[in-house]
Nucleic acid binder design. Sequence first.
DNA 1: AGCCAGGCCCAAC
DNA 2: GTTGGGCATGGC
Length: 307
Amino acid sequence: MTEKHHFTHNWDEKNKRVSVSGLSDFDLRQTLECGQCFRWNREQDGSYTGVAFSRVINIRQEDRDLIIENCTQDDFLTIWVEYFDLNRDYGKIKKVLKADDPVMKRVISFGQGIRLLKQDPWETLISFIISQNANIPRIKKCIESLCCQFGAPIQQYRGKTYFAFPTPAAIIEGEPGALGTCRFGYREDYILKAAKQIGQDGGETLYEAASLTPGDAEQYLLGLPGVGPKVAGCILLFAMGSYSSFPIDVWMKRIMHQLYGLDEGNLAQIAAFAQDKYGELGGFAQQYLFYYAREGKNREEMERGSC
DNA sequence: AGCCAGGCCCAAC
DNA sequence: GTTGGGCATGGC
């Protein structure tokens, strides 16, 4: 019994273009700019070009359609359907979260088209080690630098060279001192140690962690250098399909205080509240809340700038 | 200029 | 087991 498809797709083999139509609850911009991923760049025409799983694509949305350029049908089916979580019924999820919760009704209306991307665990691990005590523009720069320095070139696309996310071996065997040019600061040591540890078995343990129970997977992740509860939560949620995971950072603390009156300093209280209120859907709730928190900041800045 | 950023580590209780 | 200071760096 396969899951029901909520979309149809066509492909143009000659032009390497795949068109997806009939999507609902999908907003490309919200999905790619809500802070879960760092390697997508918005082009002049509103499309996005990015790299995941060593493939370069350009993607744009027109109403309920997606147009994916530089993409074979095979890649669409084996990579991008899962990456963009196209088979999940987000209408149902939002309905459950909104039931008897006016807060979530408002929060979800802001990010109604967010999807949880299914990303690569190794890339997600390193990306969120980098993310600690940094802001999103800086995280993007660090990752870009890492990929340019150590990643394998994939292809020239529209005049630019795109690089794969580097393997652990590529990072370990890179030019001594090259890591320093990425400007990771104190995170550099975590990254090098993580690369050594993960590279030891070719990433096997990390990739198998996804099939453990969420609790066991979290315990494994917490043993990696530079990985604490928040980073582990992001890896579980964005790469391992643990959708009950509810990563709590400074934005989440603030917004949970603002919206639900919880104590910002009491991490355990916030976690327990989320577990109780959102349960298995915690990860989805977390993304809507995080987006709302950051959108709210952007709104304030716009308002300040205009007067 | 100075505060803050998708926190974690480690020492001191 | 909990708490708090220190932490490289750059965005804003």
